[in-house]
Nucleic acid binder design. Sequence first.
RNA 1: GGCCCCGUCGUCUAGUGGCCUAGGACGCAGCCCUCUCAAGGCUGAGAUCGCGGGUUCGAAUCCCGCCGGGGCUACCA
Length: 466
Amino acid sequence: MAVSDRPSVRVRIAPSPTGFAHLGTASSALYNLIFARAHDGAFVLRVDDTDVERNRPEYEQVIYEGLHWLGLDWDEGPDKGGPTAPYRQSERLDIYKEHAARLIAEGKAYRCYCTAEELDAERKQAQAEKRPYKYSRRCLLNPPEGRSEFTVRFKVPGGDVKFTDMIRGEMSFDSALIGDFIIVKSDTYPTYNYASPVDDATMNITHVIRGEEHLSNTPYQLMVIDALGYARPQAYAHMPLILANDGSKMSKRKHPELNLLLYREQGYLPEALINYLVLLGWNPGTSQEIFSFDELVKIFSFDRVQHGGARFDWDKLNWINGEYIRALGDDDLARRLRPFLPQLDEATIERAAPALKTRISKLSDAVGLLDYLWTDPLPPALDADAAGRVRDALAALRDAEWEPAAIHEALMRVVEKSGLGPNKTFMPIRQALTGKKISPPIDYTLALLPKDVALSRLARVAGVSD
RNA sequence: GGCCCCGUCGUCUAGUGGCCUAGGACGCAGCCCUCUCAAGGCUGAGAUCGCGGGUUCGAAUCCCGCCGGGGCUACCA
């Protein structure tokens, strides 16, 4: 077969701009991008903005921002155009209308004049009689007269709907259990299960990779594609859901971890988040856990994707993020730290970076370690002996060159003189400088502070005037 | 309720009939290193493989039932 006979791979994500950039969108984008790159295909970003009530244009920008931050960039989308433009569903209304008209003309769909109240009554009655609800088809069989507001319903043809899921294999659904569903709302906008397959078909999407919550939607969408006479995507893949800590579904209210941009704010590295996300639902079958994106493109496969949902675990994310931070060059770390330390100049951040590297699991942790550089700590109460050692240190430090090695040397002379362990001298100094019992090594802790500031903090607790 | 998906250490998972006295990672505990904290190294605790029946010489792995969790069942996507 000639190369041109084989349709090149086209995948897509279809986020809805109804709130903050969603973690699930990132996860979905990741798998789609990996698949696209592995097959030299195109990655399409389509905006599913057919919910007039909840949709806000500014949220679209937030989605772009989140995806760009992660480096999950798309080849075609509303902002870049492409061969199957437009990529915003609100700009494709004519396409949905044409297709709906065709379905109605061919008897594959029909207008429904039922009111919300009537539908609700149907549903309640079914529930009371303990039988599964399916639309009664009243408007197909015996439509009410004299009404003008209508929706369009798809006439479910019946029979089994079969398709291939790249993760679960052959799937089969009995469409006799599915009622005629609405494809065009009374506000003339299409519903998700109608617009999505029309777009997938007209955008020549070859593989649909999305969250497991869409598995049961697939037969609906396939019936639409079939009725329209379009070729179906070659295959689907439904990725396991990301669950909350307690195994429940995440909700925007209770689970801030759904907000993609939160990870940037807290100082997670985009590469690390991606690495964590891919491990939440897939594993390589080896003990390797840290992967670059290019490695993922080479080794990822759907047959090793998990079938069940996975719980989100901050501890593991923090560990992975720490691994990435430790692997960073000092310059790189310093550069990434900058937005988190606006109080410090670049030179100070660069000097702090090496000592910070093994002590933070996310960039924002640096703040707690360095805030003594811009805030004056509460002086500790020291006993006479400790104050004496600080006094000795003060004297030794006065003439020392202000860099870690020289400071260390000067301090060790004080330690030797004291005849005690180093901590007996270092801890009071540490507390005088930072107000805390924890800090990077004492020589670094001192060197990061301007010499005069450091000495005056020591003098203050040593009971001598500086 | 109906349909669908899933069920191995606390969590993410390896495992596709004998190599499993169930392996790894995170987390946790201890030790080493060490000026504190980390990082790093070593050691350890932690899973009767959801439960009950089968099939088989042999089952985490195959079959059935049950229970549990999740998804869909909207003029949300």
